[in-house]
Design a protein around this nucleic acid. Sequence first.
RNA 1: GGAUGGGUGGCAGAGUGGACUAUUGCGUCGGUCUUGAAAACCGAAGUGGGUGAAAGCUCACCGGGGGUUCGAAUCCCUCCCCAUCCGCCA
Length: 424
Amino acid sequence: MLDRKFIVENSDLVKKNCQNRNAPADVDRFVALEEQRKSLQSTLDEANRKANETAKSIGKAPADQREVLKEEGRKIRDEAAGIQKQLDEIGAEADVIVRSIPNMSHAAAPVGVDDKANLELFRGKTPIPQFDFKPLDHVELGEKLDLIDFEGGGRVAGHGFYFLKNDAVLLEMALQRYALDVLLKEQFTPTTTPDLARNEILHGIGFIPRGPETQIYSVDGTDLSLVATAEITLGGLYSGQTVDADELPLKLCGISHCFRTEAGAAGRASRGLYRVHQFTKIEMFAYTLPGESDDMLEYLRDMECRIFDGLGIPFRVVDTATGDLGGPAYRKYDLEAWMPGRNEYGEVTSTSNCTDYQSRRLNIRYRVKGEKGTRLVHTLNGTAIALSRGMIAVMENYQQADGSILVPEVLRAWMGKDRIEAKK
RNA sequence: GGAUGGGUGGCAGAGUGGACUAUUGCGUCGGUCUUGAAAACCGAAGUGGGUGAAAGCUCACCGGGGGUUCGAAUCCCUCCCCAUCCGCCA
């Protein structure tokens, strides 16, 4: 969430930003509530001061005056409780609004209400492949080569689930191992993370568990939800913590399963592995000083390019328009890989600078040696590789006329073979 | 899942209803001394909010939330976490 004081002092900027981001939020109402809240808080502070004073005087007072003072104390506390109740009500209403206000946007982010305004920045090193046969999509390839069982997935868990089989299992692991290797060389701290997290953490990252439109599976009878990305767990990892400034930046990567209900996604391009309820992903996550997050975003984007250039997969880099940013992001780049089966680009990674939007609610701070007080860190996240979509890109771009799939050079050592053979 | 003991400032660790304005030690910062440092000694220093030009004043915070009380680190309820033991399991 944004800083309350910032919203009050810059309400015009915030309103303009909400407009650019296609995010309806009653900023004026928030400002009015915030002013009421401040004034009530002062009144409450004063009442508490009097109550404290009275309470302290009782210990020292002669016995015959105590009852009078106690009565006085009770009266003040009653008053304070009334004010507190009003304050809670105003606070709750203001809270709903402040949560609906998105992060501010980078000055260079393209302005537009939806993804049509997204801006292509540049393309990767690998050209789009020209086939002298009609390329198949990954669903057909998966069936022909006995690599993916959607039917079995449906039988066990329903539509949107799948079994990977045979060389697809090796390919998935090779992709993981390859991407992890790239990150290790860059001194990312590797982790495997919980696949569930407390709802409080989900909220802090900007996800809303439960509710009609939720993307999140929550576990009945607990305050836990299945994570939609390791961004949730890696961001939660430092919740409530204060780190020394000289430990920053922290670069982590986390391997987790990702679970998404994909509510409201029916009918959209979602064939095969493209939009599924469960997949595995390696996520990068960084905590930085505020002055360093812009550079870190470029760095994370560069890591994504390196990973996909290394795989020899054609892609383009897109600067996300304000209206398509999502609440926490200040700026976001997506990599879209060429998918011959769709004959178009499809999103494979996404990296965002969330500035202090997440750290404010998660209360993640840093301390500068010798300076008083603490400040909020900036958080960033980026996909190293989402295995489901990564596999689509590899399978479709590397398919051969004879029906086999060539294994990208960088994966051969991890896979132990250079080709996924066509079935006889 | 059960039992027991715990959670207090950067760290360690005292504090069982009013002098807590949270003892003490370590570490940190400033000073004295010193060519410089160490040691010793003196002093300062928590986090977040409100107000103020500032000094300051003030509110909240002792794992989270709630309660009892004029008054809670302390008592009660609840949740979370940690340790140890038991059970179960991979």
